[in-house]
Amino acid sequence: MPTIRSIEELKNLRKEAQKVKEMRNQTGKIQVIVGMGTIGIASGARETLKAILNFIEEKQLADIILRQTGDLGFTGQDPVVKVIFPDEHEVVYGKVNPDQARKIMQEHVIDGDVVQELLIRE
């Protein structure tokens, strides 16, 4: 742990710590769910999940719940990523590789535009 040398540093640390705590406290608003059935994992869902995880960490996003689930039932479309905004219907993306996952995170989750070319179902 680095030494805190001023109040500003302490305040910055507080902001960071609050974000980490919020994640744990399940107060997130947007859910991102990765299908991690056997086929999903075989098709690279792990890497997709990791890419999303890294993206959240890089951009310091606070109000997102990243979850994993079993097979989402879209045969031949794995890895599948589902994005759910509160009070909106689910958006499901198929064949999401790590680069595309970052794209979904940036364009859909942050900017709010659905990534049409990866869409399976809206």
Binding site: M1, I7, L10, K11, L13, R14, E16, A17, V20, K21
Partner: peptide, 18 residues
Amino acid sequence: VNDYIATDGYQALAKVLT
């Protein structure tokens, strides 16, 4: 300690000292 800092921990100490 980060959890305590997240809930305004050590802000009072900082205020007092400065």
